[in-house]
Nucleic acid binder design. Structure first.
Lengths: 338, 338
DNA sequence: CTGAAAGCGCTAACAT
DNA sequence: ATGTTAGCGCTTTCAG
């Protein structure tokens, strides 16, 4: 039924070896022979079978990118940058969204173990729940690069964004602007790296001698709606809050509506800082002050790291930290505090 | 080097057949035997090889979802809904972003041809450029479902959103509100379905006896920045425009900044309508009036369609059209025209 | 330059 | 309940 390279060879009256040669553009085939094979393949409607091919080659030229959440554009932006770079190494990328499910994340990690991809770049959400799997991946020497989570997996290749520093920069900026009642929204995902923002926030306060209050610190799920509800609650319960540092730009977008409904204007009555510098940050009504790091470079580094690991399995693990920078736009106003 | 199921069988002192049985949870293996095999597999560090498995089974239990653009959340939302539904059939989904490249799209279509996935759900951007490939897919009877583009490929399974109707509804709404100078931004992708919006826009005008002007009709690329520039240009050149129908919510988001910079307020000086009802539409500063169709249902239908095609290859092609509905929020105001 | 033959790791008829 | 055996479709030594 399905036509194999065997059929092509027979039909073209050449050996199997010659057929592969012609088809894969290898040398040592005469032009007319090659042409004949190619023609025959076409005529017969032959098409390569990736499984057979990958099985014998022992590789796939494919990479898996495991993302936590398909809604937040920052992940798409990073994935896109990884993809572009991976392309130059000859790899295609599959993007996989774990969508808040440890089981889904586990499934995707398995794609590394069962040879479906040659390497994995993962933005982990369930480092704890899937601890064994991550360990296995490492032990089996499956090329794996993590974005974040160095404390949890010190022996892996890891790219980290120094979110604590980001939190510090953001908060210091707000304090310098004169704000003394600064709210903070962090993600409820209990990953160490996520609370980094809070650490930076606390450190900045301490450094400036400004007291902090736990009532100003809240968390929410990763969905826009959840962020919106949490922020609305915070702003309602703590009317003194004049500035808000939001876990990421995505959730920060939900502040606009909450603020408006409570009769607060951004930036006049409420200063707002996000994190990530997603595209929307530039084009929302009041362009968002935020923390950024070059996402093209991040993607590039991540791709480089897996590819390097693939080529040199024995290379000692590499850990790179990216420092975010503050991008001042308009959402914190320019001037004095309320 | 790599441990195979063969090794496991030998080590457990059972036959190959029994080993597979145990491992794949098939019946006709005694408990202790099964346990022994599983233990041995674990001890030896055996892991299944997906290529070998898929090669012999002739299927992968995987679906490919080809998306035009990773930035626009509407695609993620649809993909996510497809994924959820496909899960219930036992399929995993790979999402693939063609990102405005016909070649990338072609690459992904090839995953269907080479057996990497059992079926393909594609939101096509390059139906023309990849015409041959689509035809091939159909001819080879690879399960394929398209979202949009029925004119181009009448013999395929297709789910269409009636964007013309959407354009009509949006424009009529604006006209009913009293607007007489309505701008429209459409995507520059020359797919038939995309210009549907414009058709609906024109039809609504005609029906109400309101003249249209080509100066009010512009197009832009799919990036936020491009939308922003196009809109800024339009609004600057045509100050009479009091309402804007935007190709999609994603691009509509860029209107907020453009309007603000030109001293126009939404909805007071500029009414705005989008398309898609992405999450952001609800939570932007002025919740967006838009066209919607249930994306959960859309994803569900798309998944059902491929799965059905996989199960019944001979089923006649199915074409389903979804009608968008107008969701009135706040971006068009409530009252009279300017 | 071309060909014969040996697998890659797994599943599944077909026995026993 | 378990074992034997023949491939799935392809690449790749190794000989000619």
């Amino acid at each position: 039924m399905t036509v194999t390279i065997h059929d092509v060879a027979r039909e073209a009256k050449v050996s199997l070896r010659t057929a592969t040669r012609a088809i894969n553009n290898e040398p040592h085939v005469r032009k007319p022979t090659r042409h004949l094979v190619l023609e025959t393949a076409k005529r017969l409607g032959w098409r390569p079978n990736s499984h057979a091919r990958n099985l014998v080659r022992g590789k796939t030229d494919r990479l898996g990118i495991v993302l936590p959440d398909s809604r937040n554009a920052v992940f798409s932006e990073i994935a896109s940058a990884i993809d572009v770079r991976a392309q130059t190494y000859g790899y295609n990328c599959f993007v996989l969204h774990s969508e808040g499910s440890a089981e889904r994340e586990a499934n995707f990690l398995n794609l590394g173990l069962d040879g479906s991809v040659d390497g994995l770049i993962v933005l982990p959400n369930f480092l704890e729940a899937n601890r064994d799997l991550y360990a296995r991946l490492l032990q089996e020497r499956i090329p794996l690069v993590l974005r974040g989570g160095p404390e949890a997996l010190p022996e892996a290749d890891i790219l980290t964004v120094d979110v604590e520093h980001g939190g510090y920069l953001a908060t210091r900026h707000l304090l310098n602007l004169g704000h003394r009642h600064i709210g903070i929204l962090v993600s409820e995902f209990a990953l160490g790296r996520l609370y980094g923002r809070l650490k930076g926030y606390l450190r900045a306060h301490e450094e400036m001698g400004v007291p902090t209050r736990s009532e100003y610190q809240i968390s929410s799920g990763h969905r826009l709606e959840e962020g919106y509800q949490a922020i609305r609650r915070l702003l309602t319960a703590q009317p003194k809050i004049s500035a808000l540092f939001c876990h990421n730009d995505f959730l920060a977008m939900s502040v606009f509506r909450a603020a408006r409904e409570l009769g607060k204007r951004i930036p006049d009555d409420l200063a707002l800082i996000g994190f990530d510098d997603i595209d929307f940050a530039k084009f929302c009504e009041v362009p968002l002050t935020t923390l950024t790091h070059p996402k093209e470079m991040e993607g590039q580094l991540l791709a480089d790291m897996v590819c390097q690991r693939i080529e040199q399995p024995d290379h000692p693990p590499q850990q790179i930290t990216l420092r975010p920078e503050l991008i001042i736009r308009e959402s914190c106003g320019y001037g004095a505090p309320p």
